[in-house]
Amino acid sequence: MPDNTVTSKGALGAAKNADSADNADILHADHPPYLRHHFNSAEQQADAASFAMWLFLLTEVMFFGGLFTAYLIYRNWYYPAFVAGSHQLNVVWGTTNTFVLIFSSFTMAMGVWCAETRRRKGLVLCLTLTFILGLCFLGIKTIEYREKVEMHHVPGFHYSLQSFLDPASNPEVFKEYHDKPLALDMARHTEIYFSLYFLMTGMHAVHMIIGIGILAFMIFRARAGAYTAGHVTFVENFGLYWHFVDIVWIYLFALLYLISRHQ
């Protein structure tokens, strides 16, 4: 008899709801306030959040992976153009930025430790240092971009081939690398190098800007003691994101600045 079944199910469901409503106070007292009811324990909840964060980072790996693959293929095709393009980058600024970002990863890791060991002041300090170092990175990147604008190395209508057709016209770079002039068709392919340079460092910078925004929010919340009362998932997951952005830069630095210095 189908009617009967439905009724009995409904009655059972109602009874369950009433039961859990009665016990709600007791149930809430049993667990920390941040534990969602669909998890068995705080540990399971933390593991699930960390797993989800890693899945998101995998999509990011594939996103940047596509850019890296494109870079390697084009570098293989238009090798002389990519070497000449790379010689226009400033290794000193690139190295400084690598140090800045490694320090910011360290302060972020220390921030996670402060949250885990419930040090509110330490956490605020670490997050603030990470925030400042992130801004330093973007500041240095701005100096580099400005250099490219002045040299007309930004792809587009104002792109200039002068540095590649006549390398001696740029004495600062020439005295270091003694580049030979490129033929016109190869020189034109330096525009692809700079397109990829701006696309890759630009996407990386976008990630930095998003991270810095979230850091500002976290500093605000951390001052109120939000992450030093046992629930550290947000800080930990943001740490994963920040370290990931650091790793992307480690590879960008090697691929864009370093590997073509001697060719």
Binding site: A42, E116, G230, H231
Partner: peptide, 9 residues
């Protein structure tokens, strides 16, 4: 509440 198996580095 945070004294679960989570390892602190």
């Amino acid at each position: 509440p945070n004294e679960h198996a989570h390892h602190i580095v």
